[in-house]
Amino acid sequence: MDKRLYDFDKMIDRKGTDCLKYDALSMFFGQEDLQPFWVADTDFETPDFILHPIKERLNHPALGYTYRSEEFFQSIIDWQKKRHNWNINKQWISGTPGVVSAISSAILAFTEKTDKVIVQSPVYFPFFQTITGLDRVVANNPLRRDGDRYEMDVDHFEQLAKEGAKMFLLCNPHNPGGMVWDKKTLRRIGEICVQYNIIIVSDEIHSDLILGDQPHLPIANISKEISDITITLMAPSKTFNIAGLATSFVICSNAKVRTSFNKMVNALHIHGGNLLGNIACEAAYKDGEEWLEQLLDYLKENRDTAISYLNKELPKLSVFKPDATYLLWLDFSAYGTEKEIERRLKTDAKVALNLGSTFGEGGKGFFRFNYGCPKSTMMEGLKKMVAAFKD
């Protein structure tokens, strides 16, 4: 039987669907006439092996309360084994609406007001919002730049641990830089957290979007000691373009830690699950492997094409080459102040990118560009950027 080929070049009109990426441009950027490359979802069709069971379920006239079936849990267990060589069991898995709500729940469950929570900037900006919004203190362990990627400052991390930090928010693969952290680094960071009794909350939502040779390694899969203090956050949403279904899950092997986390999730009453999201998650993990392999090939080509084009046309622009995700981290600092760059992107190029300073220390002068879209869409945006900044 011939392998089915999926069409990632297909154009989809998302306007008028209450789509954050397209329909909220005026709200976030002050103008509607921008081509959006900001929100971290893709412009690819949600695959039919997900849409079909959703449509089938919608043929039933009742959409009442739901629960997660045995098949739902088994699909996650099988996926983790196949894709990440991680053996987990059903008891380790809990459901949440999203990664950020899981982070907030963990902060509430394991820290007190004014406790310090370690982050590594520049990093996904809701990390900061959840910490400060819950009256905890950001303990920043800034990443160190090494060419077109970042590395962790492990010595400084240990100093923060010695000073009494209670939790560490890890982003792996990293957003916005795109690094897949190596085993040596993860082990050392994990061992420090074990030594100083720091809970690790690991955002691994981009773990299926690996573009390089280094595989994703869940930090909880390094050792039992590290697993015992780790709460891993995952979801099919970024991979299969189903973020609007608000379905994610948490993996935690330590029964005591898991019980405390689930107690908070239940108290906030965010444990119930989304009927269609549960169906989509199960379908994605049961039937999505071939589709994903083709998606990864397409994203690699998009990434390499974008980097080659920008390096040639805008040599003063510094571009990080991501190991994972569909996000490019672009250093525009050679072109002026962040405010001036932002103005040129909006006024001259007519594109919407994420502002780097929102990702914390080290992000100023950078902008994040989402290339998870048809190649023609990507190139249209890149060409407008080149025209706006080319000397």
Rank of each mutant, 00 (worst) to 15 (best):
D7M: 03
F8C: 05
D9Y: 04
D9M: 08
D13I: 04
T17D: 07
C19T: 11
D23S: 04
L25H: 04
S26T: 13
F28N: 12
Q31V: 13
D33L: 06
D33A: 11
F44Y: 12
F44Q: 12
G64F: 03
G64S: 11
G64M: 08
Y65H: 14
T66F: 07
T66S: 14
I93N: 13
T96Y: 02
V99H: 02
V100K: 02
S101C: 09
I103F: 05
T111S: 13
E112P: 02
E112S: 09
Y124Q: 15
T130V: 13
T132Y: 05
G133H: 11
L134M: 07
N140R: 06
G147V: 01
R149G: 07
R149K: 08
F157V: 08
Q159P: 00
A165D: 00
K166C: 06
C171F: 02
N172I: 01
N172E: 02
N175F: 14
V180T: 15
K183T: 13
G190S: 06
E191M: 13
I192C: 04
V194P: 06
Y196T: 04
I198Y: 07
I198P: 06
I199Y: 04
S202G: 07
D203A: 09
G212C: 11
P215A: 14
H216S: 11
L217Y: 03
P218H: 12
I222A: 09
T232P: 03
A235R: 10
P236N: 15
F240G: 13
G244N: 10
V257Y: 02
T259V: 09
F261L: 15
V265C: 12
H271V: 07
G273F: 11
G277D: 12
A280E: 10
A280L: 09
A280H: 09
A280I: 08
E282A: 11
A283T: 06
Y285Q: 14
W291T: 07
E301W: 02
I307S: 00
I307A: 00
I307W: 01
S308A: 03
L310T: 00
N311P: 00
E313F: 01
E313C: 01
K321A: 15
P322I: 01
A324D: 01
W329N: 09
D331N: 15
Y335Q: 12
G336R: 02
T337N: 06
R343E: 12
R343I: 09
L345W: 04
K350D: 09
V351I: 15
N354E: 14
L355G: 05
F367W: 05
F367I: 00
Y371L: 03
G381P: 08
K383A: 07
K384Y: 05
K384T: 09
K384C: 10
